[in-house]
Simulated scan of single mutants.
Amino acid sequence: MITITALPTETVRALQAGAADAYGAPPERHVAQGSGNPCRHCLTFIAEGAEMLILAYRPFAGLHPYAETGPIFLCAAPCARHEGGAMPEVLCDSPDYLLKGYDTQDRIVYGTGRVVAAAEVAGYAQAVLERPEVAYLHVRSARNNCYQARIDRG
């Protein structure tokens, strides 16, 4: 069993209130255009015309060679955090996703990185999490490498 882990609510609320992003800049405020703006907290797409935030995010506590930083979107207004193992909307829209396993030191576990069809994300994640050296996985865009969510043992 797996759990899809969205960004922590306390982190998101701080960013929604104007806290600095991973580069020390305030989040940019924009209006969602189209349907391709996935919020990394509720894990749904931000409605066209709704206000959203664009910011630099690093899904790691510290700086090290594997601590990738990149752009993400968030709802500008408070939204409910996605909870549980159900596959969220934002992980069903693309034909495929990049999954990578990490150890307890936040280092990539080599051999776990793979582009996986959307329908196979849960199964692949479950198989990778059976490896004792893997603590969690990241789901990223297979096209742009943008961070989408984390997968933990559930």
Score class of each variant (00 low, 15 high):
Met1Phe: 07
Thr3Asn: 10
Pro8His: 12
Thr9Trp: 03
Val12Asp: 00
Val12Ala: 10
Arg13His: 11
Ala14Gln: 13
Ala14Asp: 09
Leu15Tyr: 08
Leu15Met: 13
Gln16Asn: 10
Ala17Phe: 06
Ala19Lys: 10
Asp21Gln: 07
Gly24Asp: 09
Ala25Ile: 02
Ala25Asp: 15
Pro27Ala: 06
Pro27Ile: 10
Glu28Ala: 09
Arg29Asn: 10
Arg29Ile: 12
His30Gly: 00
His30Glu: 09
Val31Ile: 14
Ala32Glu: 01
Ala32Arg: 04
Gly34Ser: 05
Ser35Val: 11
Gly36Lys: 10
Asn37Asp: 08
Leu43Phe: 03
Ile46Thr: 04
Ile46Gln: 01
Met52Asn: 03
Met52Gly: 01
Ile54Pro: 05
Ile54Met: 15
Ala56Tyr: 10
Tyr57Gly: 05
Arg58Ile: 04
Arg58Glu: 03
Pro59Gln: 06
Pro59Asp: 01
Phe60Trp: 09
Ala61Ile: 14
Leu63Tyr: 15
Leu63Asp: 15
Tyr66Gly: 12
Tyr66Pro: 05
Tyr66Arg: 13
Ile72Gln: 00
Ala76Val: 05
Pro78Ser: 09
Pro78Ile: 01
Arg81Asn: 12
Gly85Asn: 07
Met87Gln: 14
Glu89Val: 06
Leu91Cys: 14
Leu91Pro: 13
Leu91Arg: 08
Cys92Arg: 15
Asp93Ile: 05
Ser94Ala: 14
Asp96Leu: 00
Tyr97Asp: 09
Leu98Ala: 11
Lys100Thr: 15
Ile108Asn: 13
Ile108Trp: 10
Ile108Glu: 15
Gly111Val: 06
Gly111Asp: 03
Gly111Glu: 03
Thr112Gly: 04
Gly113Asn: 07
Gly113Cys: 05
Gly113Phe: 00
Gly113Ile: 04
Val115Tyr: 03
Val115Pro: 07
Val115Asn: 09
Val116Leu: 04
Val116Pro: 12
Ala119Thr: 15
Glu120Leu: 08
Val121Ala: 00
Ala122Gln: 14
Gly123Thr: 13
Tyr124Ala: 06
Gln126Tyr: 03
Leu129Val: 12
Pro132Met: 00
Glu133Phe: 00
Val134Ala: 00
Ala135Pro: 06
Leu137Asn: 11
His138Trp: 02
His138Thr: 11
Val139Ala: 11
Arg140Gly: 02
Asn145Glu: 09
Asn145Tyr: 10
Cys146His: 09
Tyr147Lys: 04
Gln148Val: 15
Arg150Trp: 01
Arg150Leu: 05
Asp152Arg: 12
Arg153Ala: 09
Arg153Trp: 04
Gly154Val: 09
Gly154Trp: 05
